[in-house]
Amino acid sequence: MAKNISFTIKYWKQNGPKDAGHFEQREMHNIPDDTSFLEMLDILNEELINEGKEPFTFDHDCREGICGMCSLYINGTPHGKTATGATTCQLYMRKFNDGDVITVEPWRSAAFPVIKDCMVDRSAFDKIQAAGGYVTVRTGQPQDANAILIPKQDADEAMDCATCIGCGACVAACKNGSAMLYVSSKVSQFALLPQGRPEAAKRAKAMVAKMDELGFGNCTNTRACEAVCPKNETIANIARLNREFLKAKLAD
């Protein structure tokens, strides 16, 4: 049975990338603990609107942990702390206690400028993807799907890498603002599949170069990214990317 909790929420307000930004604070009363974190913010916004104030802006969409849109830094952890790894939208108020102070911040990273409040611009991820995150194949009549045999183990591992939702939690958690986990997950997916091999070298180089160009930091293997990844991507992907990248560079 749901119980109600009361707590203080501190949320980040920032009017565009140039604004310095500040916290605002509000007491929340009797919130049922089976509401999701975002539903709690809906309640907050409803209260603000009823008082004639501007609501708190944040990104969210599917609310079932798959679109990767939600992006809040909650009490010092991207997406808040959950046991199994989940996105902000899959965080429920039962993880909090009466009297807590909950601090909500945006992803803070130079490559993700704030648009408003906790809504940030992650279009850099799209640009990295555009640099090489694909298998170049024409729409039309490729060979029969079963003509390419892929061992189950490889397919499963590629699937694990492909599970990345591009939310940017890895960048948000990284003290270097590095996007290596994101990039390596995409590179890994294709590196593990025969379809991806022909362009593997080009892909690794192009995506890494684009990542550097866009101002993401370098990987120093702190593992903060994998600790917060809602889809449990691992730094084994990063090792694979390094492997692919070195191989590509040495072959030049």
Binding site: V135, P142, A145, L149, I150, K152, A158, M159, Q189
Partner: peptide
């Protein structure tokens, strides 16, 4: 066919078939 060619990791059987 198209999706497999793009590298969509569909579930496979042990023999490598879809």
């Amino acid at each position: 066919d198209q999706c497999v060619a793009q590298g969509v990791p569909f579930a496979r059987e042990y023999g490598g078939m879809l």
